[in-house]
Nucleic acid binder design. Sequence first.
DNA 1: CTTATAATTTAGACAAAACTAAAAATATGT
DNA 2: ACATATTTTTAGTTTTGTCTAAATTATAAG
Lengths: 217, 217
Amino acid sequence: MTLAEENYLKAIYHLEQQFPKGVSTNALAEEMKTKASSATDMVKKLAEKDMLTHIPYQGATLSEAGRGYAVKVIRRHRLWEVFLVEKLNFSWDEVHEVAEHLEHINSDKLIDELDAFLEFPIYDPHGDPIPDKQGHFKHIEKIVLAKAEVGSTYKCVGVDDTSSKFLKYLDSNAIGLGTIMTIKHKEPFDNSIKIALEHSEMVVSQSVAKNLYLKKV
Amino acid sequence: MTLAEENYLKAIYHLEQQFPKGVSTNALAEEMKTKASSATDMVKKLAEKDMLTHIPYQGATLSEAGRGYAVKVIRRHRLWEVFLVEKLNFSWDEVHEVAEHLEHINSDKLIDELDAFLEFPIYDPHGDPIPDKQGHFKHIEKIVLAKAEVGSTYKCVGVDDTSSKFLKYLDSNAIGLGTIMTIKHKEPFDNSIKIALEHSEMVVSQSVAKNLYLKKV
DNA sequence: CTTATAATTTAGACAAAACTAAAAATATGT
DNA sequence: ACATATTTTTAGTTTTGTCTAAATTATAAG
């Protein structure tokens, strides 16, 4: 698998969550920030390598091999993110770009030893699960802040939007993975939510509330 | 700088030690395990980018910029080697291949933080000096075992040949960086040398003696 | 059911980095 | 000095992954 092939597999894997019936050429091209014709070419190549099945004008679906490979790349990516944040003082909005490169280094020993060195982490710095060596994810049942119930207390376990802007907003408001919060009030007018943190209270907008994952504690 | 360009710069940098007047196309092609015509093409490209000066049929010499870039790549390579050996339990014959990939990830923050995490190492696992952020090497005065004097005691500080075969030979004889040895006898017949380690004595051949660097203690 | 529009694929080109084969320049031996 | 051998360069292809423009297929609206 070349670098480009790995990136396409990863993109298709992510898009499959959203489009389980098959990933369209356009969606893939948009995700990869390229043109539809390029996506077509690569899909054809990956189909020849039995990484996916492709019905022209319909969409692409990963094969077992393709999905396995994508998960492997995701495992590498997320382990490196943990390393960058825990050992090299990266903040959660800085890790992505570097991890995009590190994830393509293909050495089983490297990744297995890194995994052990980090003491087999189960979640990455954004709260996303890290698949184990066999490709199995530890599932976490999480809800979105927008659907949390008033009066209950939750722990922050992840984010949906991983843009630098959003992560910096959370940082500046002392919200991170593991932060404990209680839902004080939901404002029906604009769907904003008032939450209580350890030492402060704040109101978050609906767009924030839709991108923060919580787990009841 | 692309991956291929970085590898060529590094190769030219190494060859310049051996051929200070200019690196020939053939030598470069051999080092890169490619053909002379490919070397010519790349040298032309690097000359256009002002990474080196090239006089056709004469040879190539790195510019300041080119040498600086090569040193940067070497710094990255050697820091990653330290990381792999010290943190991920790689042995010194396993590190090279993976470090060849890691060295091309271009992030100043990544390398500076890695440097700090490793506590600013000055030598890599093979005893080669690691340039600092400014590209300066800490020079070590070392001699080759073949020229050590009978009766003196030395510390092993590096190797010349970094082939897996040689490193495994050293490993299996309990010789590593930092190993203390005393020269017992030099055999004029075949230039073999008898040395005393902490708990044993052994005889090494001339070809081994020419590839082990020592420092008087 | 036909037509307009949107999505997808094909065809043809390009740049990077490699190759082969051949030409040109330099070096060497007598 | 001259013929030969070696080194280096040039010319023309190949592969990977991209692009634009054009053609094809699917979808939706009337």
